[in-house]
Nucleic acid binder design. Structure first.
Lengths: 203, 203
DNA sequence: AATCCCGTAACTCTTTTGGGTGACCGTCGT
DNA sequence: ACGACGGTCACCCAAAAGAGTTACGGGATT
């Protein structure tokens, strides 16, 4: 019984990952967890063959969860997932014993290939890689500016106010807004903010 | 060492509660948890004298957490918190052994009085009550309609679309929107959606 | 009985938003 | 060297949003 545990605090990402992993040949069961605590709690009763876990999670972070998991079970195979470029977290996690990481921009095929390989070879370690985006259904990658603008929106600021805050013209803010709407598939700023929360891009 | 554990999945509500409880005379320590799992995990090592817990939480719900907590420790004193009128949940929780409940509209004074009393008398059970709002810093109470409108916004619908969906005129939707903005302290719909997420009013 | 809140709706007026388009400049990777 | 992308800015234009105000009927509370 080959089972994989997917852990991500964002419901949207979690579901997308679950569905993607479920299509991997040989995988019979995919369970999900929303945070590190849940992973640890579940690990006692129900060990999966592979864990895919987001680096950045509220509460117990991904790195700390890796540490605790491996101290409890040195054989656990863990692959970290990362949305943004928080390579620090990834590096720490790999140093702590994670088998490697996948950028969330990885294609669905890439993800499946990686999971397949990790399941087939218990000693396998991932060579860092990243590919195109959106195919996997993972969180769209927003640029730093776009996230700043999205955060401004989530604080109720108008485009003009965001511009003043970031020393940009209102027109530039509007450009960033339009681009991030497109990436998120949002129809307006309220929708964008909601998707930002659901994807875990803002808090 | 009198300590109280506050459990609510919404960060804003959690902080508001923590601060309110911390002002109660005799309370020396207030710890927080974001969900039922965390409460149970923490309970093993660190028992508080009183637990304030939201009824509605993701994952392990409040009611189920009460059950497990009491089966592990029949002496645990738990007061449920409820945002909306989900009296079903409250009734179940009280039936399961919670000492009573507080509506989140309770005033700060009300909350403090209740906590004081619950701490003073181990056998005490709360008589159901509810008071004015916003004093405690808890989530503003939105009406059913207002929440429906807010949800529509979070799905990227325009006022006109929301109106069509709910069989209301666009003007009526705008009225609900204006009222919920006022309650939440939101400057626009994007802000309202963000606050809705932070308060745990929408997902 | 008086009052408050909710739901419904309309009207006006100003501000903001969002789409479309074009443009210039760096940087990075090929 | 070329192209893609990100960041910057501008202009036009139609649609939407938000503020203010008024109003009426129905519950619930006092």
């Amino acid at each position: 019984m080959t089972s994989v545990l997917v852990c991500d605090d964002s419901p949207l990402a979690r579901e997308a990952l679950r569905r993607a992993v479920a299509t991997v040949p040989g995988v019979e069961r995919v369970t999900t967890a929303a945070n590190g605590e849940e992973v640890l709690r579940r690990w006692g009763a129900d060990r999966s063959d592979l864990i895919l876990m987001d680096v950045r999670m509220p509460g117990l972070g991904g790195v700390e969860t890796v540490r605790r998991l491996l101290s409890a079970d040195p054989g656990a195979r863990i692959i970290m997932l990362t949305v943004s470029e928080d390579l620090d977290g990834v590096a720490l996690a790999v140093a702590a014993g994670a088998r490697g990481y996948l950028h969330k921009d990885a294609s669905r095929a890439e993800l499946r290939a990686t999971v397949t390989q990790a399941l087939a070879d218990p000693t396998w370690r991932l060579a860092p890689r990243r590919l195109r985006s959106t195919e996997m259904g993972a969180a769209p990658t927003l640029t730093a500016r776009e996230i700043q603008v999205l955060e401004g929106m989530s604080h109720g600021r108008s485009n003009a106010e965001i511009g003043r805050e970031l020393f940009l013209s209102e027109d530039t803010v509007k450009t960033h807004a339009r681009r991030l709407f497109k990436k998120l598939g949002a129809s307006d700023r309220a929708h964008a903010v909601a998707l930002g929360f659901r994807w875990g891009l803002v808090r």
